[in-house]
């Protein structure tokens, strides 16, 4: 298969600590890849380096055959790399509609802004709160809003950093539905999540990180039975 988005020996250090060490991973359109691992394993740092929030100390990031290791975030976004953050990252002081409009404005093809806004709001079920300040909607709605903002720039790969953390069961269902719909649209989805029931339900492939290293990669069945993964992570969750 032709490679779509991949990293080669990606490394990030904080002082002495190797937060991400020599990680080579690839992601495929239409496939949901989960990255799991204990707290502090380096999952968020890996995403930060892939999306340009942090500079790599070693290794490369490629997208569609192009070396994007040193591009600033906005350039990566316009190429088709989107992300959500572990701590929801939206414009708290703007209305939900304004939140969605800002990323829409960066589209090259300036289609009908109003129409696109409505489409996104209804896709993520946010029409009822469209005029509310983002700070005042529920936590689950904020997570959905952040996803709407990511979709507005029409990404081809979307990194989701713990989209299910702290949401109600009903909201969780809605967010999972959205994740499935992203896969159907052909996006490469990279899901970082601690909720193992959901991970094993939605992921096509799973990568496991531990102390900055990639220790396993495979389909859910393989990962479930991998002795090393059980030892460092899954075993401790029972």
């Amino acid at each position: 298969m032709e490679k779509f988005f991949w990293t080669e020996n990606l490394t990030k250090r904080f002082d002495g600590l190797v937060a991400v060490g020599n990680v080579s991973l690839s992601f495929t359109p239409g496939v949901i890849t989960a990255i799991i691992g204990p707290n502090g394993a380096g999952k968020t740092t890996f995403v930060n380096v892939c999306t340009g929030v942090l500079r790599a100390d070693g290794g490369k990031v490629y997208f569609r055959g192009r070396d994007i290791t040193n591009l600033p975030p906005d350039r990566r976004v316009s190429l088709g790399v989107g992300r959500t953050f572990q701590i929801t990252n939206i414009f708290q002081g703007l209305t939900v509609r304004e939140n969605v409009r800002i990323p829409l404005l960066s589209r090259k093809r300036r289609a009908d802004l109003e129409e696109e806004t409505e489409k996104l709001l209804s896709l993520l079920n946010l029409q009822d709160v469209s005029e509310t300040l983002a700070a005042n909607i529920s936590h689950g709605d904020q997570k959905l809003l952040e996803m709407a903002m990511c979709l507005a720039v029409e990404p081809e790969i979307l990194f989701l950093d713990e989209p299910l953390a702290g949401v109600t069961p009903a909201e969780k269902g809605r967010i999972i539905d959205v994740i499935f719909s992203l896969k159907e649209r052909g996006l490469a989805v990279v899901l970082i999540e601690h909720d193992m029931d959901s991970v094993f339900k939605v992921a096509d492939e799973i990568a496991v990180m531990h102390r900055g290293e990639l220790i396993a990669r495979g389909v859910p069945e393989e990962i479930k039975n991998d002795q090393r993964v059980i030892d460092v992570y899954l075993g401790g969750l029972e």
């Binding site: 929030v53 975030p73 990252n89 800002i102 903002m149 990511c150």
Partner: peptide, 16 residues
């Protein structure tokens, strides 16, 4: 106003 609120999100909205 977006930049004032949250410049990181403006970057990830594809704007410089």
């Amino acid at each position: 106003r977006g930049v004032r609120e949250n410049d990181l999100r403006v970057l990830f909205s594809g704007h410089s």
